[in-house]
Write a protein that binds this DNA or RNA. Structure first.
Ligand SMILES: [Mn+2]
Ligand SMILES: [Mn+2]
Ligand SMILES: [Zn+2]
Ligand SMILES: [Zn+2]
Lengths: 151, 151
DNA sequence: CTTCTAAATAGGAATGGTTATAATTTAAGA
DNA sequence: TCTTAAATTATAACCATTCCTATTTAGAAG
């Protein structure tokens, strides 16, 4: 969904279109996997008095509307992206960057396991942790690192 | 790994065996997917002056030793379990309970995607969100609910 | 264009899980 | 029993996120 459609969708739900909201939608349209703080900092360049409350409140509205998704890359902050096609991420344990992969491993075997438990599936999360192209390269000369993360 | 072996492993690494540590290992041996606060409350019944610092410090040591794993079920608190066989979870959006599934969906297709990106895989996380047997049953008479979570 | 007001924002305080600090206690080896 | 490095307790600090409320404003109505 592009910027203009986001605006339209937002107004259609009866929300007012404030400058702060317009900028948040702009930022989300042009950058994936962005944190609330990053959004806050960017808005400040045009709206110096914007508050964190405004950023979080609007991100939560966008989540309720289903226009964005929340992501957790295990670096202590929630990240956000527009709710476009289903995909997963390769997340670098060293630099925190994420590469998107379109391949989805959700299998009929998992489906069966859920059915056998009378569990009704609403969504799933799949993440791969490791070292990205760039950090692999650096490791060759600087020595190894370990990665611990919550699953 | 059972309780006695955990103790042995812990001492072998040069750590002192305190009563607090013994109890933490006991609790972890008998309960899966337990939070720091739950551990803290349980220890208090035999060690009333135990502090949160002790709980967190020792959980972090156990993580470093690779004896336990960290889990995130999206309810705001980190959970822990002994590092036994590789498995995944069906997580209930209503009651927060988790059912373990042995089926792992990690596929050669994902492997290929990683290779094509020069990404070296260290681990992966797969979680299924939905409603458990018990909450499904309740929903039939009480009306539906929605679930939003970080992926 | 002006008025009106429900909705939104700014600024700051509060929250909650987790980590850090420093004084005191203790496990365990000599 | 002595000794001491390591561990614990109690408390403060941290930090992402949420809450509170006085003030501002988008957009509807006249
Ligand atoms: Mn993405
Ligand atoms: Mn488990
Ligand atoms: Zn998928
Ligand atoms: Zn797996």
């Amino acid at each position: 969904m592009n910027f203009q459609n986001l605006i339209k969708e937002f107004k259609k739900k009866g929300y007012k279109l404030t400058p702060q909201r317009r900028i948040i939608l702009e930022i989300l349209s042009e950058e994936k996997h962005i944190s609330a703080e990053e959004i806050y900092e960017r808005i400040r360049s045009s709206q110096p008095n914007v508050s964190f409350g405004t950023v979080y409140r609007n991100l939560n509205i966008l989540l309720e509307l289903g226009l964005i998704k929340q992501l957790d890359f295990k670096d202590g902050r929630t990240r956000f992206e527009l709710n476009e096609g289903h995909h997963h991420h390769l997340i670098c344990l060293n630099c925190g960057s994420a590469v998107e992969i379109q391949s989805c491993p959700f299998s009929s075997e998992v489906q069966k396991a859920a059915i056998s438990q009378n569990f009704s599936i609403k969504s799933h999360s799949f993440k791969v942790y490791g070292y990205c192209r760039n950090c692999n390269y650096k490791k060759e000369k600087k020595g190894d690192r370990k990665g611990e993360q919550r699953n």
